[in-house]
Computed example of a mutant assay.
Amino acid sequence: MKKNFFDHFADQAAYFAGSPGAFIGASLLVIIWAVTGPFFKFSEVWQMVINTGTTIVTFLMVFLIQKAQNKDSKAIQIKLNELVAAHENANNRIVDIEDLTEEELDQIHKFYENLRNSRNRDTSKEE
């Protein structure tokens, strides 16, 4: 499957951002910035360099992290749907349940809590 440019870039950027090399590089930049403070007399421009840089990186990373999270969520959902569909006793009505409203999800959650509680009572009676 061929990825478009943004998908490829986002995957690589997210992978790099979570690597030890990225952490070490960011740490070195902060150390270098801190060490240069006396040379720039801890000026406002010196402070603004780190503030602006970290703000821009944080802003862009939010979107990359969200893209990665969306992709992971979709993959996990597909895997769960496959497991539900493959099990003969499973309730296939819950496939694609993520499309329901919060209230509908709460109702289904309560249904399964009640089901669990009734099964626990049934097993405790057998003992």
Score class of each variant (00 low, 15 high):
S19K: 07
E113C: 04
T36W: 09
I32V: 14
A13H: 07
N114R: 13
K3S: 07
N92K: 15
F59Q: 03
F23Q: 09
L105V: 12
K67Y: 06
N117G: 01
S124M: 05
T54D: 01
Y112W: 12
E102S: 06
I97W: 05
M61R: 09
I65G: 01
H87P: 00
M61Q: 11
R116V: 04
K74E: 10
H109V: 12
N89E: 15
I76Q: 15
S43V: 04
L29Y: 10
K67E: 04
F16V: 13
I32F: 09
L100Y: 05
I108L: 13
F111V: 05
Q47T: 12
M48P: 02
G21W: 07
T52G: 13
I76N: 04
Q107P: 03
I76M: 13
T36K: 07
K2C: 03
K74Q: 08
T101E: 08
K79R: 10
T101I: 13
I24K: 08
A34R: 02
H87K: 12
K79P: 00
T55P: 03
E88V: 15
G37S: 08
F42T: 01
E113R: 06
N91K: 06
Q69G: 08
Q12F: 00
M48E: 14
N92Q: 14
G53M: 09
D7C: 03
D106N: 08
W46G: 00
N51P: 00
E88N: 15
I65F: 11
L115G: 02
R119Y: 15
I94Q: 01
V84G: 02
N70D: 09
T123I: 14
V49L: 07
F63D: 02
G21R: 10
H109P: 00
I97G: 00
V62C: 10
V84S: 01
V35R: 04
F6D: 01
K125R: 10
T55W: 12
